[in-house]
């Protein structure tokens, strides 16, 4: 699934531009606990989270996650957005709750970190 499709499905806003909307994303991961993300991720995922601090960006950078979608209408501050930009990590912001965001992407076939949904 490409980033522009994810943006549409989540009715999300891009928090910095320009980003490569054709970026291919093969898996997703949802968590508010960054240690969990570090523990079980493959690299290459979209991270769906309700946390908006700089640790989310550092976690994505170090675990090689491709993009981040913030849920529940939360937005990081400008400095955190700037950090993501410097690391070339696209940021999406959606008003959907975490569960709704996950279900929408899952129903369109985007698998989780283990490569499966069922």
């Amino acid at each position: 699934m490409q980033l522009w499709e994810i943006q549409g499905i989540l009715e999300a806003e891009l928090l910095w531009e320009p980003v490569d909307l054709q970026m291919e994303i093969e898996m997703a991961r949802a968590a508010d606990l960054m240690s969990d993300v570090l523990n079980r991720s493959q690299g290459g995922e979209l991270l769906i989270t309700g946390l908006v601090n700089s640790q989310v960006i550092w976690t994505a950078e170090l675990a090689e996650l491709k993009a981040i979608a913030f849920v529940r209408g939360k937005r990081p501050d400008q400095e955190t957005i700037g950090l993501a930009k410097s690391k070339d990590i696209p940021l999406l912001a959606t008003k959907l709750l975490m569960y709704e965001a996950c279900v929408r992407l899952g129903m369109r076939g985007l698998p989780g970190s283990l490569g499966t949904i069922w």
Binding site: A31, D32, L33, S35, D36, L51, N53, Q55, T59
Partner: peptide, 8 residues
């Protein structure tokens, strides 16, 4: 609150 401190 930073997403850490869960003993992992």
């Amino acid at each position: 609150e930073m997403g850490f401190g869960a003993g992992m």
